[in-house]
Amino acid sequence: MSFHGRRRGRGALALAAFAVTVSVPAPASAHPFGDPQTVTVARDEQRPEVVHVQWRVGGPDDLTLLGVSLGLLPEDRVLLDGAVEYRYTDPAVIGASDRFAGYLLQQITVADGGQACTGVVEPPKALGLKGATVDYTCPGPVDTVTVGVRMLTDLNPAYRTLATGPQGQRAVYDSNAQSHDWVLDGRVAPATTTGGLARSAAVQIAGVAGGVLVAVVAILIVSRRLRRRRVVA
């Protein structure tokens, strides 16, 4: 077999492989595993009985999907294969709607000692970029509140919400964990603050990286020894 024959044959396969390659990228689809939606919980600095909850959508297609489910956008935006066709005008349409405000109040709840706080949705200015904020007024000044978040999980239970609170407190909401207590008066355990979490993460990541490095070096040493033995044999 000549080298040129081999080379040409591989070239043909390369061409065939390339023909398969040239395919149109898949359109955007709603992705509960994509850019995660977030929630930020904070107490008003002037009024200690008011809690602000800001919600930001993950991907723009998630917002469009919500708009379709609320009847604000045509259903044909969701294609048969589940892909979502989103437009830059969608956030404004959704943000201006009372149905969206009602959905926010229904899916995000705040309670202080079992007593529900009353929410009012601030008119969103740039829903797609900055999200929407709901101001919850509780019966009295709050130290710790229970915030329930069920955003988008009615559309797909796989949606998750990554939430942050004062001093870097963090929580993850999903279908199974829909409620979390937030400390708003500054008496937060050090381990749950941003600094504590970051330090813990740095140590853990360094540990994993070190372990992987040791494993790679060990594999290289063993494979070299095996290679030498084969050469000798």
């Binding site: 077999m1 024959g5 081999r6 080379r7 040409r8 044959g9 591989r10 070239g11 043909a12 396969l13 390369a14 061409l15 492989a17 390339f18």
Partner: peptide, 23 residues
């Protein structure tokens, strides 16, 4: 496998001559 085919099919040989550059 394709190389083996290319040895016996002249058309395939012709096509494969320019294929690497095309790829």
């Amino acid at each position: 496998i394709v190389v083996r085919g290319a040895r016996s099919h002249s058309l395939l040989q012709l096509a494969t001559r320019v294929a690497p550059v095309l790829a």
